[in-house]
Design a binder for these strands. Structure first.
Lengths: 202, 202, 202, 202
DNA sequence: GATGAATGAGTGTTCATTCAT
DNA sequence: TATGAATGAACACTCATTCAT
């Protein structure tokens, strides 16, 4: 299951190119050139452009899932749930072609791959959802003030904030994304604290 | 400056195709076919694919700006500021190729057009920002409880929510976007009311 | 329905190339080069290689059907039925790419075209069958000695002889094909005369 | 000169693939896959595609020559000379890739191999010719009524009939080939008997 | 305004072949 | 013997663009 070094370099180049140009816009010639081989040689490693795309997607997804996991694991109990991941996202975006790839990839896969991509994308979001809920439960502690409906609502809002940051990162700059994060996280915190207090007092 | 009917039909077809396939993915052949003319005839109306893209972008932008204006104008004073536009967005997304085009267009314009698109996109967001602030001021009424910093913060958050909705619309369904809107608008409202109250009482 | 001169030249070149190399073996580059244009320019005339193949096939079929018709029309009443066409075939084979194309074309059309080709090929053979039977009836004159079963048998044999000649032409030379024709036509004549006599006398 | 089992399996697969797709259409990848090895491994057994083709051709030719020999050896003295082989051909065509290969191979060998194939094909036909003549002599028995010229004529006609059957088998079905054989063999028999009788009586 | 025809550049893909391992 | 990797050449096909008509 481990990949040869050459194959791995192809996957990396593919991630970078798909990240910049989406599926249709990325060309196998360019990817091959980046690796330093001829276009035809790619076919010794992957059966088709789609197969390469899938390998690149799974590579990127694996890395980003691990990254997200780490962020949630390292978050202190008292921090606003999920905030650490949001900050890490902003710092990371410029550096990680994997992340940019994931965001762009979902946009325009060719017809056949749409479902395949969607399924994996949703699994990724479900993981974020789970990790956020776990953190939320830790955060509110023993009191457990939030009802099920409220928990769900905050999770929905949290994922919305994550998407919102990613869009801002794609379109503009880390700086502006950070400003947005501060605004959104502050209203998020306001609402969350308010509900915990009100839920706490009879 | 008014366009011939034929030219207008080309722009409409272009909007639709760019909306579905981004700049690179859309082909002049397909656009011409949709209009019912030959590809070469397009060049009697537009000097290049880029020129057509720009015309389509400005068409879509104009329509969506008007649409947004109308939403804000029609919003009742007591409604949560900007909420009407968010709901309209969700309803509209499936129907309006112009809107889908605007969202997709920013993603992958060819190198040369990136700045051109960005400038216009920002102007669009600035308008939303302005209209939201005007509504916010109306809403809090004479009291004027929010300080300048808070006003700006809520505006930033509001635009974040709008982006978040649009992403959800692109990737998934109107239904899920609506659930997200309800979650985000409720925390937004919690925070807003809280700040107005606290700002109100001495 | 009339073709532009350039289009017609492409069809002619296509007939020649498909005749020499079958469908798969013929390359659009080579056909374009023969015409004196670039490969991409072919697509201004035909939508695909298959479309060009079909046009070439129908061109060749039309010409060969006319040729066969003429041969049967010009045959004297007393000549052995269909013999004139066989001789003409041998003379013509070296000169007519259309004929060579027809024979080769049926061999290896791509999956999709197999049925299409077969249907037309059979129509061609049915025409030969009809013309032969008409001549046969003329030849035996008023007596009408041959029963229906015999008529059919001779028609089957006649088409067999035609195929046999074509194979010999493809594999070897006109000279050897002529020798084969003489052998086959003589046994054919023997049998035919014998059946007419026997049918004649009570 | 004996082949390793692996080499033999390659030749068998090659026969099958060349039979279905002619020389150009058959791909070494597909042949290798059928054998269960990689394409590059073929070159441990054969120096080139042409070399493999030649090996496959000789394999097929050997088998079909033996088959023809057997047919002629098993034919009863009183049967119409060569008829047994014709019937066997029809039965065999669907089952024997070797036979299909031989027929197809001659059609489209690449330039270099054309002569090589022709020489072997002619030797095969010469064998059929010889065996037919031997049978013909047996059949007419001691009388020896047929003159040399007639013997040769019937041999030419016989080979023509064989070719005709093969074409019908390639293009259509065993059933139609059988109908053709019955028509051709009946006129062949008519003529043959007629010439033996007339040659017999002074 | 519209079009048929042409084109150079480019797409993904397959091919037979080579070579170090 | 067998293979993974590489490659040049060719494949059918699409692209945006040009130009004479």
């Amino acid at each position: 299951m481990t990949r040869s070094p050459a194959t791995q370099r192809i996957v990396c180049a593919a991630v970078a190119h798909f990240a910049e140009a989406s599926y249709d816009g990325a060309s196998l010639s360019a990817i091959a050139e980046a690796v330093g081989i001829r276009k035809a040689s790619l076919y010794a490693h992957f059966a088709s452009k789609e197969a390469l795309f899938m390998a690149a997607f799974e590579e990127a997804l694996g890395i980003e899932r691990t990254f997200a996991d780490d962020c949630f694991n390292d978050e202190s109990d008292r921090a606003l749930p999920g905030l650490r991941y949001c900050h890490a996202l902003i710092r990371r975006f410029g550096e990680s072609a994997h992340l940019r790839f994931l965001l762009r990839a979902g946009y325009m896969p060719p017809g056949t791959l749409a479902e395949w991509v969607d399924a994996r994308h949703e699994a990724y979001l479900a993981q974020l959802n789970d990790r956020f809920l776990a953190r939320l439960d830790d955060w509110q502690g023993a009191q457990g003030a939030l009802c099920a409906m409220q928990r769900e609502r905050f999770a929905l809002a949290y994922l919305g904030i994550v998407d919102s940051l990613q869009v801002k990162l794609i379109y503009t700059t880390a700086e502006l994304a950070l400003a947005r994060l501060e605004a959104l996280s502050s209203i998020f915190e306001d609402s969350l604290i308010q509900h915990c207090k009100s839920g706490n007092t009879p």
